[in-house]
């Protein structure tokens, strides 16, 4: 239901972009846009963007794209995956709705992230038609992302709220640095998952917002006008935020994949059929396990 309204809202926004024949980027507002570049008191976003984009973003993305998997490879080789007994009971943790929402999000990410990267490294791909198509896919799959991220936000909001366990979890880095099966302090979701959740949702909304701004480019927002922020500065800020957050999204996305596919053997099944191994819950989500025990559900 929510997503329908968002699509309607998006369409409304696009009509806004058509409604005004007067451009806010190139008409008389051009002046404000120009003045924003390097005049005293301006945000200097033009320069920042130029420096970031010309010298930092590409190497950083490159670093994250290959550095993060490299670290995990070392982890995998030295410490190896966690393997939990499949003999004990299975605990039903994700409803069908949970899983569908997650699946859509997953597809969205798998579409969005590589296409985003292709745009970032467009030169490598020769630019032109191929990258333009990727750009369109990037934009279209954002709709898919919106459809998933809103219900995800609502359905997991409660268990994702911070708790005291999170600090302890952080102190021992989730217990991933050794192979011992000590119970790790965590509720239904551990601090790592929470980070990913908040980045994917709140960060995701920001990604969507900044992405949509870059997509429509020439629209009129009264808040900008009343705060005398020029349209181009807004777009520049969008591009910077989109890229910086994109780095984080990429890093955590890679982590998420590593965790679910490699680090915890079979963890991915829970997102497919909804059941987790009891031992996995007992060790990795010890507080949650205790809770279930008390309720007599485990």
């Amino acid at each position: 239901m929510k997503s329908k309204y968002i699509i309607i809202a998006l369409l409304a926004l696009s009509s806004l972009a058509f409604g005004y024949s007067d451009s806010v980027v190139w008409s008389d507002n051009l002046v404000d846009n120009i003045l924003g570049y390097d005049k005293e008191g301006s945000l200097h976003l033009g320069q920042y963007f130029t420096i970031l984009q010309s010298t930092y973003f590409k190497p950083l993305f490159f670093g994250v794209l290959f550095g993060v998997p490299a670290i995990f490879l070392i982890h995998y080789l030295i410490i190896g995956p966690m393997i939990f007994s499949h003999d004990r009971k299975k605990i039903y943790v994700f409803t069908l709705f949970n899983r569908i929402v997650h699946a859509i999000a997953g597809i969205a990410f798998i579409l969005i992230i590589p296409t985003g990267l292709i745009m970032m490294f467009a030169t490598t791909f020769g630019g032109g038609e191929f990258v333009r198509i990727c750009k369109d896919i990037h934009a279209i799959s954002t709709l898919l992302f919106i459809v998933s991220i809103v219900p995800m936000f609502l359905m997991w909001l409660r268990p994702m709220l911070p708790s005291s366990d999170d600090i302890k979890w952080m102190m021992i880095l989730g217990g991933y640095l050794n192979k011992r099966k000590d119970p790790v302090p965590a509720g239904r979701f551990n601090a790592g998952q929470k980070m990913w959740f908040w980045l994917a949702t709140l960060g995701g909304f920001l990604m969507i917002g900044t992405g949509v701004a870059m997509y429509f480019q020439d629209f009129r927002l009264d808040i900008l006008v009343s705060n005398s922020i020029s349209q181009i500065d807004f777009l520049r800020a969008s591009a910077i935020i989109h890229n910086v957050l994109g780095l984080a999204v990429l890093a955590l996305f890679l982590t998420h994949i590593y965790m679910s596919v490699f680090a915890i053997k079979g963890a991915i099944h829970s997102m497919i059929n909804g059941y987790k191994e009891e031992e996995e819950v007992e060790i990795l989500h010890s507080s949650y396990y205790k809770e279930l025990k008390e309720k007599g559900e485990a």
């Binding site: 120009i34 984009q53 630019g127 032109g128 750009k135 777009l235």
Partner: peptide, 14 residues
């Protein structure tokens, strides 16, 4: 060109 508009964001003159 892929139409990403980065050049517009970098350009001092719109």
């Amino acid at each position: 060109c892929i139409g990403c508009a980065y050049c517009l964001y970098a350009c001092p003159f719109g």
